[in-house]
Amino acid sequence: MAQRIVYWFRNDLRLLDNEALLTACNSSEEILPVFVFDPRQYEKTRLGFRRTSALRAQHLIECVVDLQNKLRRKGGDLLLRIGEPEKIIAQIAEDFEASYVYSTKEIAPEETRIESSLSKNLKLLNIDIKLFWTDTLVHAAELPFPISKLPSSFAEFAGKMRGNLSIKNALPEPEQITLPAEYEAGELPSLKDLQIDPEEIAFVNETIPDSQVTPSNAVDVLSKYLETASDPAGFHALIDSGISQLLSLGYLSPRYVYHAVLSTPESEKRQNLLRDLLERDYFHWTLLRFGPRIFKPSGVKHLFEKRWSNDNTVFETWINGETDDTAVNAIMKKLKTEGNLPASERQKSAEYLANTLDINWTWGAMYFESNLKDYEPSVTWGKWNKVAGVGQD
């Protein structure tokens, strides 16, 4: 058993069914849970808005507080830092003479570059890193085909998966979190600490009630939804129920949600949820298969013949809700103030930008990335690929 392990929280803000965290706790005498706020995530894009909006940043801060409180109830704490994770995690591991760094595996190019940089920094210190795949229903090695043979349509993917689904049961929370005798937890950052002007969301706090889901109420949110009557027509089970937000920052694991859904009686709602969970997985595998192509105008299909306008003035009318379409305008204003939209409204506003205004669809995806509380690279960019006609079917 190792003396000490640094656990790096990323998009897995949970204790329940966190294989990486539980393994770290069971494999060491002491554990150092860490969350790093990376300033690069809050910088302005070339289009003028932040990569992560002030509203979404504030939401993350609140969720990290929630996680910290859960860890404290287990006897532990959460070390909070601001900076580049690849440097900070390595420094903490060195300072505390850790044997390992444990964390979850990401698949987007930027996140994997950070993993690679951290691994290199740790090798210089003779410290190993272990990354756990926890963000899909099954591990990549358990798919009934190699990633290079990923079906070109979700329908084909779902057909292959339905006969090959063997989802492991959810794991329990760690019984106890044991930290070193001396450590510095650090201060929770404010928006100002992240170089964000709090006034960017001041008007929101006066008008929008705080009804967000958090790591603490995630199980209740899921349970209450599963207990409700059937969904209305046009309802997207994962997004419109709020479950997509539970999954995006890892308040719940996909396999926990899967087994909770599976325990309900056979119904259309159950089938829709299982379908949406499979579709989420498909977007993840698409990102793993095609990598950076999903973020380019030509998309995963490499359709170079299609050209979009890069007219920033027209794009600004879409962002600010000043187009000729009043319904789209209302949707965009809601996105800015609430950080969330029903699936049908996401589709409508995306189609309007890409197919009516003919504006570069990647700009729209970047704006959704900035604002959506349930943002996931694979899902958000995958759906925009489909809207633009350059994605998987």
Rank of each mutant, 00 (worst) to 15 (best):
F154C: 03
L16N: 03
A140I: 13
G83P: 05
S148W: 02
E142D: 15
A343P: 00
R56E: 08
D38R: 02
S117C: 02
V204D: 01
S344M: 09
V261R: 04
A2D: 15
D231Y: 06
L179R: 06
L341V: 02
K334N: 12
L118T: 08
E199D: 06
E156D: 11
K105Q: 15
L262T: 14
T323R: 04
P265I: 01
G242E: 08
E305Y: 11
L194T: 04
E345F: 03
E227I: 07
L246G: 06
P180H: 11
Y225E: 10
A365H: 02
W308K: 03
N320V: 00
L150P: 01
R280K: 03
S153Y: 09
A54W: 04
L188H: 02
L274T: 01
V138P: 06
T136R: 10
T134E: 15
N169T: 10
D240T: 08
D325A: 08
G242N: 10
M161H: 08
L78F: 11
E227T: 07
L191Q: 09
A365W: 00
F35H: 10
L278G: 00
C25Q: 11
A24H: 15
A155R: 11
S190D: 02
L131H: 02
R113F: 10
K336L: 13
F304V: 10
R73M: 12
V390C: 00
L357S: 09
R255K: 05
K87W: 05
Q195E: 15
H59F: 15
L13Y: 13
A354P: 01
W318G: 06
D193R: 01
G299S: 07
N18E: 12
T337D: 11
A93K: 09
E268G: 06
P342R: 14
K74H: 14
E142N: 07
A20C: 13
Y258P: 00
K336R: 15
D358T: 12
P174R: 05
W318R: 07
I114P: 00
L249V: 04
M332V: 04
E227G: 02
I147C: 14
H259A: 08
D95I: 10
T207V: 12
L249R: 06
V204F: 10
F9K: 03
S28W: 09
A350D: 10
F9Y: 15
E227P: 01
S211L: 14
K105T: 15
L150H: 11
D128F: 04
A237T: 12
S241W: 05
V390G: 00
I88E: 07
M161G: 09
V204Y: 02
F315R: 08
A330T: 05
E29Q: 15
H236W: 03
N11F: 05
A237F: 14
N169M: 14
P146N: 14
R73S: 09
Y183C: 00
F9P: 06
W285M: 08
R50C: 07
R81V: 09
A365P: 00
D66G: 11
S244P: 05
I359F: 06
A158N: 06
Q392L: 13
E94L: 14
D197P: 00
A181F: 12
V65F: 03
Q41E: 10
D220L: 07
N360V: 00
V261A: 01
R56I: 03
K192Y: 03
E266H: 02
P232H: 05
V221I: 12
K348W: 04
L125T: 04
L188A: 05
S116G: 00
